[in-house]
Amino acid sequence: MIVQIARLLKILNSESEPGQISLAFCFSMVAGLTPALSAHNLLVLLAVLLLRVNLSAFLLGWLFFSASAYLLDPIFHRIGLAVLSAAALEGLWTYLYNIPMVRFTRFNNTVVMGSLVFAVAGFVPLYYLSNTLIFRYRDRLLGWVRNTRWMAVVKATRVYSAYERLAGWGGGA
């Protein structure tokens, strides 16, 4: 059982380059901010599983952004309404609206469209911001965290030992 948990942790914590973690955060923002049952989230899930991104970061970010979405819904609604009502885009939306598979994605919903636009617009900035923060964390804070008592307790667990052993087999990024 412990080995299995350690294996899961290993999979989740592989791909630990800053870029891989940042990309995971960016995907989690798209999945978390947009309504969970939106069709485009299938593509996000495929991308997350197919690309070498950090799965732990994705899950953590998804939880964080899902919670934030409740507060941001009114803003998403306004953005979505503005985008869907834009006269210049009406032809495009009308064309898409008449394609059954596209309409099924609920792109014409103000919250779906607003949150997607917000998440896509924030994708690249978040990537660079996360990268910068991860670098700084590793430079300045990681050493201190490793020496905390809490970390010592975690390292003493059997799951951690098993995880260390598995990580030593050559897994990871």
């Binding site: 409740y70 819904d73 998403f76 609604h77 979505g80 309404l81 869907l84 009502s85 009406e90 939306w93 009308t94 609206y97 008449n98 609920r106 014409n108 919903n109 103000t110 919250v111 779906v112 607003g114």
Partner: peptide, 12 residues
């Protein structure tokens, strides 16, 4: 509330 508004467009 919380679920947005569905915008309807002209259908062919």
């Amino acid at each position: 509330r919380g679920t947005g508004v569905n915008i309807r467009f002209a259908e062919t």
